[in-house]
């Protein structure tokens, strides 16, 4: 499996400038702006919040207050291996919760968070359109279907092993 690619910093900066200037001077645009930036960068780093505040003339404390209030926004980058677990109705019924629990246990973080070494993140997702194959999980571009809770550990360990042999 490939490590997820991250834009280089200057590309990130440019994307952010473009999004903010598209919404410039439109009142009430804060949430859509944050949303678009999160889609572009995967998360909302602090420098983005300062930039949004400066250009849109909204106190940075307020920007951060909103981000911290909505679970949909994240202040941490996704892991190199971004795990998404579908919690759509079909997957839910087939035990998506158990999968999430196992992941949390194995990685020592809560859903919505990233491991301190930046390797893994867990995200809860909406229906991925593979309902018949649930529960469904994606890790970067790979899709895992019909996962059993007791297989979670093996999947993670396999990635760890491969990752370790690549970097050492």
């Amino acid at each position: 499996m490939e490590v997820r690619q991250v834009d280089n910093p200057d590309v990130q900066r440019q994307k952010v400038e473009d999004i903010i200037s598209a919404y410039r001077d439109k009142p009430g645009a804060l949430i859509p702006v944050l949303h678009e930036i999160q889609n572009a960068l995967g998360y909302l780093p602090r420098w983005v919040q300062y930039r949004v505040s400066n250009i849109m003339n909204i106190p940075v404390s307020e920007v951060n207050s909103i981000i911290s209030f909505y679970a949909l926004f994240s202040e941490k980058p996704k892991g190199e291996y971004a795990i998404g677990v579908c919690k759509g109705t079909a997957c839910y019924v087939r035990g998506a919760d158990k999968i999430i629990e196992k992941l949390e246990e194995e990685l020592g973080i809560e859903a919505g968070d990233t491991t301190p070494d930046g390797k893994f993140s867990i995200e809860v997702m909406r229906c991925l359109g593979a309902c018949g194959l649930g529960p469904v999980m994606v890790i970067n571009d790979d899709i895992y279907t019909r996962i059993k809770p007791d297989k979670v550990k093996d999947i993670i360990n396999a990635i760890r092993q491969k990752d370790g042999s690549e970097t050492t």
Binding site: R46, Q49, Y50, P59, V60, S61, E62, V63, N64, S65, S68, F69, E75
Partner: peptide
């Protein structure tokens, strides 16, 4: 008119603090 602080977080975890 400085707005250095705001409620950050939600529910029981809310604190009055600067951004982040």
């Amino acid at each position: 008119d400085v707005n250095a602080i705001a409620p950050i977080g939600r529910g029981f975890k809310t604190v009055i603090a600067p951004a982040g």
